[in-house]
Write a protein that binds this DNA or RNA. Structure first.
Length: 260
DNA sequence: ATGCCACCTTCAAGGTGA
């Protein structure tokens, strides 16, 4: 089965682009970020027509995450433990009836955290700590688990074109990179690092400054796997062609192939 | 130091992203 993560930068604006990509790539499960709409505005019918079930955690104007699945969605949880009721919509987790048994998949839109000298940076760090605590508790289930999303972290220097551009940025801050490392070391395998690992393979290119044409991107979208999911990982792919589509998102899908 | 682009809300222009 193929599971993808994609920050679509508005599901309504992007719908024709998303539908075309789904028809071409045929992923079985898709974790979407930045849907930028409320639940009732989510274009579920368009995805259902392609054979997907939908679980949505929306929000007006900003953020919002969703999971599409060709298999039954058995359970859905929204928000991280410890969140306030009015928290930003950045986390949704589903148990999916995959062909070879249940699999848990989460769609994650980690806060950007810029500018670094504001409360936004503290919110990002707090959010990362809550994610790590929850992720550790999920590992205790010893099941196939995929944490897929836009992590807003430039983890390696080679995950961007020029680190000098990012030294004062919240995506490159030492505290943020250390926190991402701590999440990995809790027991996760980054699908891309396990099956590819090449440097300068990006998942985001800014709309500005001709970033796509110049090849100035960053690698910030990841699929993190529990040991039980890593055991059945067969391949990984960054769908770079999606950045050259009509009305593209600034992110492209990242996909893992699992024997699950 | 800011805007460069593209999105949001809701018609004008400011907030947000990375």
């Amino acid at each position: 089965m193929k599971i993808a993560s994609w920050n679509v930068n508005s599901v309504r604006t992007r719908l024709p682009t998303i539908v075309k990509w789904l028809e071409d790539a045929q992923p079985d499960v898709v974790c979407l970020q930045e849907i930028k709409c409320q639940n009732e505005q989510f274009p579920a019918e368009a995805f259902e027509a392609l054979g997907y079930n939908c679980a949505v955690h929306g929000q007006k104007s900003y953020n919002g995450v969703a999971v599409l699945s060709k298999y039954a969605i058995e359970e859905t949880m929204v928000g991280l433990p410890g969140e306030m009721a009015d928290e930003q919509a950045r986390y949704i987790e589903c148990v999916i009836s995959a062909p070879k048994g249940p699999m848990r998949a989460a769609s994650i839109y980690l806060p950007n955290g810029n500018p670094k000298d504001t409360e936004k940076f503290g919110y990002k760090l707090g959010w990362m700590r809550r994610l790590r605590a929850h992720a550790k508790s999920l590992l205790g289930f010893e099941e196939k688990l995929v944490l897929a999303g836009d992590y807003n972290v430039i983890f390696r220097d080679e995950d961007c074109w020029d680190p000098a551009v990012w030294v004062d940025d919240a995506l490159y801050a030492k505290e943020v990179r250390d926190e991402f490392a701590a999440l990995l070391w809790a027991g996760f395998t980054d699908a891309y690092m396990a099956k590819d690992g090449r440097v300068h393979q990006y998942t985001f290119w800014d709309y500005q400054r001709g970033a796509w044409q110049r090849g100035h991107g960053i690698h910030i979208d990841h699929l993190l796997l529990s040991p039980q999911a890593a055991d059945v990982l067969r391949g990984v792919e960054i769908a770079k062609d999606a950045r050259a589509m009509e009305k593209p998102s600034d992110h492209v899908p990242v996909m893992a192939i699992l024997d699950a």
